[in-house]
Design a binder for these strands. Structure first.
Lengths: 266, 266
DNA sequence: AAGTGGTCTAGACCACCGT
DNA sequence: CGGTGGTCTAGACCACTTG
């Protein structure tokens, strides 16, 4: 499923061009974008077509539309964080990680493949990862992977870790051929036992890139599960961020022993 | 913020009328809806206007559009459930519940008010709640509440419990005036100590009703946290389902003792 | 008052799907 | 092939915000 370059509907081409300018910093955060009429003139398209492109970016969360004022590049969102300390006795459980002994039925027909391996990446998400791992983006490698269930795209995962830690095992990971458990492969490449530091849940709109990989419309709700794994000495070593198609996934935490799974689910 | 009846843009009025027919069962699940041209003729509107209404419902997840074929009423989604058993030692921790000793800073400026109290409700969500609590919808009462942070809508919560269990305390709850901790008020009304059975996380698109309550566009990603609380004898007593504006909320689970909160968050 | 985005119409052509 | 949704245009009027 190669990324279409400059094909497809006109409104999508326009949306991509605007998004590219935002990514390039040509339109900075909080900056006002050109008006719909100005875009229409520039791209030689009808205002409604431009409008569709702009609406797409707004749904994807890239820009914000203020009626009667203009459209603006969005800054990374302010989040309300609800913190909970889980009993450290359960520290070894990686919520939602296959290697934690999940019932195999939960992920029957699942496979995961590496999409790309990028050294020294530089998007805003990469900056965040660097902050989590107390290092710079230059020291990082990002691994992008796509998991499918029954051949349908299900979750996009990104893993960040120090390039140095990956070492020669990186080459093996880069081979996009085989299906594998990427979490496990990365952990093995790093070569130390990792323990979970924290996990967070949130929901976002699919941006244009994730939308193409998951084969859903931009703006589709995605369930985000992110978190940090540490080396035994407590140093943060791995930051991961999964985006699952939200309305097809539930993470369930069971708090009581010996009870059945939630009822009434198909 | 009263619900607009038959006002507002034409495309929204049309969307509501179609949604009403779906809710009433007039258009059953998997049924094909009238074509855009047929709707246009019926409502005396342009096809593009109808199209906007239909797109709204599709974003809200109520219908599914199949190109070249037609639009169909969606059935409740098949979900992939990832189950994890948390050490029962942490059974008393209600993830994200204020009464569990969360740092007050996490929810500074928060308030929660009851919106409505409905006996014997009958939507699909109510059916699900009844299944979770091993009873019929006739025996249930649903409590809808809206929490705000700094006066901005933040999360819509629905609580289901047996009408009988609520007893006379229901009248007090129904008073929409005061701000209160609804979880705590309901628990007190029931009169027994409750413990957490399970909690689940998923992401959905805001339907038309939630979109109005949260003052966001239909289709906005919402972070869903749902679960069941039990009486000490193990009987499921309370089912709750919160929908938070997804891109403004993160639930963070800390697995290691004595570590700082996730870094790099604003 | 001027400029912005929001809604609506009329009409056209295309791409996709089933028969 | 016919019907469906998908895209695009041209033009119009409205509602909102700011100066």
């Amino acid at each position: 499923m190669p990324t279409r370059r400059s094909s497809g509907p006109l409104y999508l081409q326009i949306a991509r061009r605007i998004q590219d300018r935002i990514d390039a910093g040509q339109y900075a955060p909080d900056t006002r974008l050109p008006s719909e009429n100005e875009f229409a003139a520039e791209f030689g398209a009808n205002r409604l077509t431009v409008r569709q492109a702009v609406a797409e970016l707004a749904r994807a969360g890239a820009i914000e539309i203020r009626r009667g004022v203009g459209t603006f590049v969005r800054r990374p969102v302010l989040r309300h964080t609800v913190d909970v300390t889980v009993d450290p006795a359960s520290a070894r459980i990686d919520v939602g990680n296959r290697s934690a002994g999940l019932p195999p039925t939960a992920l029957r027909g699942a496979e995961e493949r590496v999409l790309a391996l990028t050294a020294a990446p530089s998007t805003p998400a990469d900056q965040l990862a660097a902050a989590q791992l107390d290092c710079t983006v230059e020291e990082l490698t990002r691994i992008d992977a796509l998991a499918r269930i029954d051949r349908r795209p299900w979750v996009v995962s990104s893993y960040w870790t120090a390039t140095e830690l990956l070492g020669p095992a990186a080459a093996e990971l880069a081979d996009p051929g085989p299906s594998r458990d990427v979490t496990e492969a990365v952990t093995r490449a790093i070569g130390v036992e990792l323990e979970v530091d924290w996990r967070g849940f949130s929901a976002i709109a699919a941006d244009i890139a994730d939308a193409e990989r998951l084969d859903v419309p931009a703006g589709t709700p995605l369930l985000v599960r992110e978190g940090v794994n540490c080396a035994p000495d407590g140093r943060p070593v791995l930051y991961l961020r999964r985006r699952a198609i939200g309305d097809g996934t539930t993470f369930v935490l069971h708090y009581r022993d010996g009870r059945a799974a939630p009822r009434g689910r198909e």
